[in-house]
Design a protein around this nucleic acid. Structure first.
Lengths: 113, 113
DNA sequence: CCATTGATTCCAGAATAATGGAACTATGGT
DNA sequence: ACCATAGTTCCATTATTCTGGAATCAATGG
């Protein structure tokens, strides 16, 4: 995952409406949610929500699938995991440290915690 | 960790200079780095870097300690872990899912993965 | 106490992001 | 073909963030 893409993902999540929407999708899991539903529960105008969902989709954090009249949005968990891993890559130059001992990082990164 | 603070942390990381600086601090670990060093390696004017470091500090992602003429910045790992946990809280409403099986979440959150 | 080095603050211009009204597209029902 | 519903795109306004020159503050050495 390269720098630019990470920035884009972080920026996508760094906005109240988008963070709420994303977290709702995380909770919804495989079932996903439609914009209509989200607009209702989050109390956001449809066009504004659409704008923000596009940001999330563009960052690859959510996927869209049309189902008849509706469009179902789902959180993209792989993308989130990749993002989390990036932040602690090579932490402490390999020395034992305070980062989550259960290793967000894949084994090939230098972090030994 | 509340919503507003999470937004602030994500926004702090969603900027190229700040993400570079933060990752450098993550790698540096307990030793930390001074603004002077970072300005050199990152190729950023001192005042601009200072502005960005303040953003990171304000979000609680880094700490500062004065050591004689220098100020040593260090990454705050606890804060990062809290941030990562927030993103996948209650994922999939408790159903088994694709989120990191090694559980970024503390045990009391519903995610069973 | 003055000079030097390391770092921050002040400021104003430039760039980027967020908002919501109105118009548009797509699907399905009658 | 027509209408209703679900979502998206367009656009202009507003608000926020980024940048770097100049001035300032803090600590040390002569």
């Amino acid at each position: 995952m390269e720098q630019m893409h990470v920035i884009q993902s972080l920026a996508a999540l760094a906005q109240p409406i988008r963070l709420d929407a994303f977290r709702a999708l995380v909770v919804a899991g495989q079932a996903g949610l439609t914009p209509g539903r989200m607009a209702g529960t989050l109390g956001v105008p449809a066009n504004t929500l659409s704008f923000h969902l596009k940001e999330l989709a563009h960052a690859g954090l959510v996927t869209q699938e049309r189902v008849s009249r509706n469009i179902v949005y789902r959180a993209n968990f792989e993308q989130v995991n990749a993002l989390l891993g990036y932040l602690t890559e090579n932490c402490c130059a390999g020395a034992p440290c305070a980062v989550n001992p259960c290793a967000v990082n894949p084994p090939d990164t230098a972090c030994a915690c």
